[in-house]
Design a binder for these strands. Sequence first.
DNA 1: TATGGATCATTGAGAATGTCAATGATTTAT
DNA 2: ATAAATCATTGACATTCTCAATGATCCATA
Lengths: 159, 159
Amino acid sequence: MTTEVEEESVLRPADKLMAASISRDVGFLLAKLHAAGSVLNNRALVEFGLKERSYSVLALANSELEPTQREMAEFLSLDPSQIVALIDELEKSGLVIRAPGKLDRRAKIVSATPKGSAVFRRAEAAARAAESAALAGLSDAEAGELKGLLRKALWSGRV
Amino acid sequence: MTTEVEEESVLRPADKLMAASISRDVGFLLAKLHAAGSVLNNRALVEFGLKERSYSVLALANSELEPTQREMAEFLSLDPSQIVALIDELEKSGLVIRAPGKLDRRAKIVSATPKGSAVFRRAEAAARAAESAALAGLSDAEAGELKGLLRKALWSGRV
DNA sequence: TATGGATCATTGAGAATGTCAATGATTTAT
DNA sequence: ATAAATCATTGACATTCTCAATGATCCATA
């Protein structure tokens, strides 16, 4: 997520490397598209005091699913200790609260405060716009297909 | 890329969070699939002394495209200084060499040594297997579609 | 109902990565 | 010729990753 994203769709020198075999590697393509999207995402989220990571935590907290921190960690592919830090931040900002799990008091259920919900709704709109920008090369139908394929790859048997 | 990847396709507790709005976010899906794939990739590459990063650099060096370090940095979405470190490693292992650019002697063209090519060929096979595993939920046709959509999103106008 | 082992959030340490500014060598533009 | 720009490199610093240890709580079983 280092290099800048060009506003214009200019033919850049490095694009000659598209011919290399690595550019048929899905892992590489995922990383590159994600990197480009992250720049746009973080740029869109900064006005809400959020980054991609804290945004995704807030999104889960804002759901009605009552996620525990551990569930968040697994779902977001992060270490539990990273979730602690992210939630500390969000809690300090008054966007989420921790509550002991109902069945299991070791676990902590994270939920958005009214303020957190309000911020999330606005941030979500900004994130959607950033996503559109990142997928500008695709039609709406293609973007939908992409989403569907990614979801299927992740949760094929389990959906 | 923290949490382990399950071998079996078991329904896990955190999967309930699929219902959250964030799981319709392409950025999130890209990150998650990439994280899962990275685990498999790095596991497959370790026997060659490579990681995902050094593998991708070696792949570019192994092409006939004579990439400069700067082109590699841009193409791989990395900072030029990270490329320096990666190539230092690969060069120390005798897998690549630096040569001054023909037109521009400031630039350095990185290319694979015969040993580097040999290692790459074997690593590539392992990486392909890892990719298949990461995309086990998709048919071959779907995997191809996914690849095509990712490439189009990245290089729409410029292909 | 007690006890041992497992799982939760949390902390902290150290490694790996990301980010950025400064440098000398070269190129490009004037 | 000179000035500005670009390349690889270095080094400093911030962020993120990874892992092991801890106290609290849960679960299984004797």
